[in-house]
Write a protein that binds this DNA or RNA. Sequence first.
DNA 1: ATAGACCCTGAACCCAACTTCAGGGTCAAC
DNA 2: GTTGACCCTGAAGTTGGGTTCAGGGTCTAT
Lengths: 136, 136
Amino acid sequence: MRIGELADDVAITTEAVRYYEKVGLLTAPTRTPSGYRDYDHQALERLRFIRTAQTVGFSLGEIGEILALRDDGETPCDHVRQLIAKHAADLQQRIEGLQAMQADLHQLAAVAAAAPPSSATATHCHILESAGPAST
Amino acid sequence: MRIGELADDVAITTEAVRYYEKVGLLTAPTRTPSGYRDYDHQALERLRFIRTAQTVGFSLGEIGEILALRDDGETPCDHVRQLIAKHAADLQQRIEGLQAMQADLHQLAAVAAAAPPSSATATHCHILESAGPAST
DNA sequence: ATAGACCCTGAACCCAACTTCAGGGTCAAC
DNA sequence: GTTGACCCTGAAGTTGGGTTCAGGGTCTAT
């Protein structure tokens, strides 16, 4: 498949795809005789993974590291294990942080729900001073 | 307290603090007669909140919106409720994304653990081809 | 009264992750 | 055989989130 179709499938631009190749996240695909990039299904999966990881907060650098775990058959296992542990711990921290913020917001939402029902006419909002900073 | 002490307390630079003020996340504090910024405990709490929210993946723009919920007594409640709902849904999505990736990594870790124990001498790593992309 | 640590401002610079631009080739359809 | 949608490259521009720089004031300990 050509770059346009690939890009459409994961809802990004062709420029972004070429950018990922440039920075080493995607390996250079084979080319058609006329020089067009020609992708296979694996590239599609890889690209999907990149986007998922990104929306979840990983930088392209981190994503590169994670992908390298799968790519690089030469890496000593110890190094691989360390990387996995590091990323897993990092994820756990992020999840906990998010959950703390979610608790905050839910508390705020509860106060909002308890506010006078016909508050649409009010000019002043009561949903205040509750929900302090996330208790890390 | 002066800017240096504030910055130290949350482990960021004074420049970052001034930057947050410039972009509106921190309100301009009172000044000493000589023009130095003079912060109170609330500023410290607010700054901590900003950093927590940031490590969790919110942009400064989003953090600004969330903080505005607490600051702006003029905001109509409906708008506030919408913002809360939006951020809560967003959080839920991010948490689920992170958990999917975590499952991925744990699977990878399990394969790693099952690999030959004295693999330090090996030049080839077996932790491969397992753990496909996060099943979104 | 001066050295050293701290503070001020505004402008310029930096990195990540893209996007836009300039200039040009390919290919299926009419 | 040319129009229009697609592709190519390399360089420059953009946005977010800061940091660095230049030039100068403040405070306190000696």
